[in-house]
Amino acid sequence: MDAKVQYLLRLGDNALVLSQRLSELCGKGPALEEDMALTNVALDLLGQARLWLTHAGELEGRGRDEDALAYLRDAHDFHNVLLVEQPNGNYAHTLVRQFYFDAWHYFQVGALAQSADVRIAEIAAKSLKEITYHLRRSGDLVVRLGDGTALSHEYTQTAADELWMYTGEAFQYDAIDEQMAAAGIAPPAATLRAQWLAHVGDIFAEATLAMPSPDAWMQKGGKTGRHSEHLGYLLAEMQFLQRAYPGAAW
């Protein structure tokens, strides 16, 4: 498969899988405001996933549209990072996962908005406005919970530590990422990682949270289709209807 198509699938799958995870909280958020925020973020991500997957399908040229790509691929054909498929856990997990992702997404898509590929740059510029808002919100809440009560601090620190090993994969470039970076489409890994570490460091300092070691051992595999056990369950729920009733429509 063409490297650009693979790269677009990674972008689309990250947004799609996280959107699905956040949608699980619809009607179950810990507070009304959070319920609305999480589902609005899910909606933004779903819209972005549609743009990326549609473009991937067009470039691939095998007649697969956004729906075919979302509903008719199995777990090993998904290219999202492991971070986004992790379960919602307690609210600190949901929030810290979001913050780690938003910060990376923001700098990545910010660079893509300046991409040499015109269509990628257009989708990125559109998405970046939404992602900026997401990151402001999740960063703000990490500070409030981290620098909140003893209990909220403890939960947030634990979530930050537990999810840390899933943050490295985004910066471990393989041949596909390198090819995109060399073509001026994607940002270089080192730049992206430095920006991410600096922003997470700033927010954690303000949140009185201890930053885990950047040199810690990191999980990987999602980008090439080797996922944690959680993705299969997520897809089973998301894809059931289209699998059981192919072509079902409103």
């Binding site: 923001y106 700098f107 900026t132 990151l135 402001r136 703000d140 920006q195 303000e206």
Partner: peptide
């Protein structure tokens, strides 16, 4: 710079 746009206080 991207960092300025996501200062916690930006827009608020």
């Amino acid at each position: 710079g991207l960092a300025a746009a996501v200062s916690r206080r930006a827009g608020i």
